[in-house]
Write a protein that binds this DNA or RNA. Structure first.
Length: 433
RNA sequence: GCAGGGGUAGCCAAGUGGACUACGGCGCCAGUCUUGAAAACUGGUUCCCACCCGGGACCAUGGGUUCGAAUCCCAUUCCCUGCGCCA
């Protein structure tokens, strides 16, 4: 959420920033917010004036009664106020609700280093690591490879849960855990606190961390409960400090969040949906940081280095793109995506690194103070970055490490987490169906 | 799930319809004093509107009763204790 004062004081700055997004609806929304804010302030003034009168008369009544006098004429004068007040207050809270709703839908201010562009084609590649894998044979997709090895079963998952689900078997399930432990150990060594958070959140917490439109297209809701399955541990880790004021000396708070992630992925059918690339559930090791405002841009780069080192440790060929203005979601101020090379020759997103500045913190009301006992200094900044999303990382691993005989080489860094296994060949406790 | 007790500012804590402008203490900020610091004293400490005076809101959250609610009523939520259930 943006600071409404920024919108009041520098509306042209906000408008110019919004214009970079190629989304005229957001400009209209800004105008709506400005008008609603004006309306709200006017109503607030009238309500406060009426309340002042009521308070005056009421305390006068109190004084008269205490001194044994007759307050009935004063009471009569006061009796008309509550109904007037109630009407004005309901107008005011209506305006307040519309203002808040508008503010919750206005996106974050984009950082000046975000490249201008219309959609993901305009994202700017800033780095490429490793070599494109060379094969003496026609490389296959991870779905083909793993089904042939008997370690994945997408068909039966479609039968029992629908498209976008999977049964991972034996080496594949082990690989899922191996990449998680690999990422966890990497972050533990760097001082990140390990947190396994709630896998469901209430709406009030959720609204603080996510774009409201996501509720329609992304979130699974639990029936008859005010609970939503989390789409990433970013959401439950981020909302952990909701309505709290932390000490500056405790910042930055660096967290390694681990959780399953659940996503409906409405409207994504047909977009590279075969196999494990786009699924309704996966595991993710997430990096999350609460920081002082002045530190967030440096920490954004630290998070980026962490992700790249993780992929380099796995020997995966990847590139980094600076996400352009037209491809940016509403929460982040700046975002880097990491894209790994896949067997069809394309680089596809496997992770995403965002500096959300104070946008989430203002929604969640997470502040910091300089000393114990001091008044709050301001809102913290929040950052989040994928460490490893198991599904997509495994797609890249399997497709880049596939061998001509249909087996998959296990990267050195993962072998300790795979009980020393060097090659995945489907021989671990095979299932004959 | 049932029964009882509770939630007051950064922390502790008083307050059961009008003296609440929420007592008091600790912490924190500023000033006075001091070579400097401590102590002492004075003012301040959350949010909103106006920002010059000032006004409004906030006692877990949301409603209600009343001229007036931290205080009374209802719902929700969280914590504690006991019982029940349970991996």
């Amino acid at each position: 959420m943006l600071d409404v004062k920024l919108i009041r004081e520098k509306p042209e700055e906000v408008r110019a920033n919004l214009a970079r997004r190629h989304d005229p609806a957001k400009i209209e929304l800004l105008d709506h917010v400005i008008a609603t804010d004006k309306e709200w302030r006017e109503l607030t003034g009238r309500v406060n004036e009426l309340r002042r009168r009521r308070n005056e008369i009421s305390s006068e009544i109190g004084r008269v009664i205490k001194s044994g006098g007759d307050a009935s004429s004063l009471k009569e004068e006061a009796s008309s106020i509550p109904s007037q007040l109630k009407e004005l207050e309901s107008e005011m809270s209506n305006a307040d609700e519309r203002l808040r709703d508008g503010l919750m839908r206005l996106p974050n201010m984009l950082h000046e280093s975000v490249p201008y562009g219309e959609d993901d084609h305009d994202n700017v590649e800033i780095r490429r690591w490793g070599k494109k894998p060379e094969f003496s044979f026609e490389p296959k997709s991870h779905a083909e490879i793993t089904e042939a090895l008997g370690i994945s079963d997408f068909e039966r998952a479609a039968k029992t849960a629908g498209a976008g689900f999977y049964y991972l078997r034996n080496e594949f399930a082990l690989l899922d855990h191996a990449v998680q432990r690999y990422a966890i150990d990497f972050l533990l060594k760097r001082g990140y606190a390990l947190i396994e958070p709630p896998f469901m959140l209430r709406r009030a917490a959720y609204e603080g961390v996510t774009d409201l439109a996501d509720f329609e297209s992304v979130m699974y809701k639990v029936e008859n409960e005010d609970l939503y399955l989390i789409a990433t541990s970013e959401h439950s880790v981020g909302s952990m400090l909701m309505n709290e004021t932390v000490l500056a000396e405790d910042l930055p708070i660096k967290v390694c969040g681990i959780s399953p992630c659940f996503r409906r992925e409405i409207g994504q059918h047909g977009r590279y949906t075969k196999g494990l690339f786009r699924v309704h559930q996966f595991h993710k090791i997430e990096q999350f940081i609460f920081s002082k405002p002045e530190d967030s841009w440096e920490l954004h780069e630290e998070l980026q280095r962490n992700s790249e080192l993780l992929y380099e440790g796995l020997g995966l060929h990847y590139r980094v793109v600076n996400v352009c203005t037209g491809d940016m979601g509403s929460i982040a101020s700046k975002k880097y995506d990491i894209e790994c090379w896949m067997a069809d020759g394309e680089f596809r997103e496997t992770g995403s690194n965002s500096n959300c500045t104070d946008y989430q913190a203002r929604r969640l009301n997470v502040k910091y103070r300089l000393k114990e006992g001091a008044a709050p200094e301001g809102f913290v900044h929040t950052l989040n970055n994928t460490a490893i999303a198991t599904s997509r990382t495994m797609v890249a691993l399997i497709e880049q490490y596939q061998q001509e005989d249909g087996t998959i080489r296990v990267p050195d860094a993962l072998q300790p987490y795979m009980n020393g296994m060097k090659v995945i060949d489907g021989s671990l406790n095979p299932l004959h169906f």
